[in-house]
Amino acid sequence: MFSIKKRVLTVAAAAAAAFSLLAPTGTSFAIDHIPCRDGENFLKIWSHLGGSSSVDCYANRGRIGFGGWWIDRIYTGNNDLMYYDSNGADVRINRWTDISFPNRPPKVRVIEIL
């Protein structure tokens, strides 16, 4: 009986140790798609695809798919940004940058707030 109890405790301790090694530590971050409001310093992206256009705002560190939309303008606000375009380029844009792409907008797969 004692050996079974000891074995169960050993297995439980091993499972707890494995979980603590595999589980992420510290604060986790997730990018959020938020309503755009004037005067806020969130990431703001003007884009289009086909006949549709959109203005989207994002907050918090993280990465999100952008669906291959063409980006017309980016205001980074207080965020450092990395975008990954469909041609395979990884482009970093520093905070407090307002950039337009009037002639050759990038087609973006993923955006990431750093």
Rank of each mutant, 00 (worst) to 15 (best):
K6M: 10
G50S: 13
R61H: 05
G51D: 14
W70T: 11
A30C: 09
L49G: 08
F2R: 12
S28N: 13
I99G: 04
D90P: 00
E40I: 15
G50M: 12
G68T: 03
G77K: 01
D38E: 15
E112F: 00
A15D: 06
T25C: 11
G62L: 04
I74S: 00
T25H: 14
E112G: 02
G51Q: 14
N79V: 01
T97A: 08
A89W: 07
L81A: 06
R73Q: 08
P35L: 02
G68S: 03
I99M: 08
A18Q: 05
R7V: 09
I71W: 00
R109D: 15
G68C: 13
M82A: 06
R109W: 03
R37S: 15
P24E: 05
D32N: 03
P102L: 01
G67I: 10
A15I: 13
A23G: 03
G67C: 06
S3V: 12
N94L: 07
G77V: 10
A13R: 10
W46Y: 10
F29E: 08
D56M: 08
N41Y: 13
A59F: 07
S54K: 11
L114A: 01
P35I: 06
W46F: 08
P102K: 00
D38R: 15
I113V: 07
D98V: 07
S20C: 11
N78W: 09
E40W: 14
P24K: 03
G26Q: 15
V11R: 04
